[in-house]
Design a protein around this nucleic acid. Sequence first.
DNA 1: CAGATAGGTGATAACGATTATCGTTATGTC
DNA 2: GACATAACGATAATCGTTATCACCTATCTG
Lengths: 129, 129
Amino acid sequence: MAKLTTQRQALLDIINASHRHWDADELARAMSDAGQSIGIATVYRGLAALESQGLIDSIQLADKKRYERADKAHHDHMVCTECGHIEEFSHQTIEQLQLAAAHEKGFTLTGHQLVMFGLCHQCAKGSES
Amino acid sequence: MAKLTTQRQALLDIINASHRHWDADELARAMSDAGQSIGIATVYRGLAALESQGLIDSIQLADKKRYERADKAHHDHMVCTECGHIEEFSHQTIEQLQLAAAHEKGFTLTGHQLVMFGLCHQCAKGSES
DNA sequence: CAGATAGGTGATAACGATTATCGTTATGTC
DNA sequence: GACATAACGATAATCGTTATCACCTATCTG
């Protein structure tokens, strides 16, 4: 039902063109910078459509949702609490253990999100006393 | 620095008296029901204080933060997207693999949160067509 | 082509959880 | 008791996100 309009294609292109994790505001600004201004509501609607079509992925952080390209295998995230840097990692065994744990509790799993918090290499170095 | 005032003690007691995962609003209402009305700002401040003192734990869900007792070993959560039921589970191996993965990426881990989404046993049964 | 239908768009209001502000109040210390 | 420090409560403010509503656009059907 949802259409891949010109604007949604542009959002998708921006997201696919980098490995960043974008929030709605950043995407609106990026569109603006590229000469195609876009309403913020349209950004949210477009992102929701793209995500439900599986064309992009997202992670829900404490304050906001961030979107990323979906053309990679499932992975989880490590967020630096100092600089906001996001590192990705995937671990097959963890995924399998999660499935087993869910099954054990009688849950039918539809998704999951693992976010690890800490200091990235850079920030850990910087904060040595 | 933070004081364990009468109100904060009462919040702590409510949380410790059950295995529920409370949000700020529910706690304010519970206090009210118990005859000690409390300002919502005070609830938030109290919860932040209790959490930073390690007296309670919290999980950040997509929409809001929920608080739970801290007297158990670390665990993660499974949330039923239908009824909101939260099931807890802990998995030693997953924890260890997370630590290893973080180390590999040069991250100094300070915390993590794993939330799994799906249908609980009850809701899975109910939605069979 | 005309009209119908289904979505999409954008400005903006509304929402909901959380935090900030600020005057007041309780607690602890000399 | 007087002063300092933190907590409290009402309420305004913040901020990400969603709803509303009045257009607009594309596609289909005859």
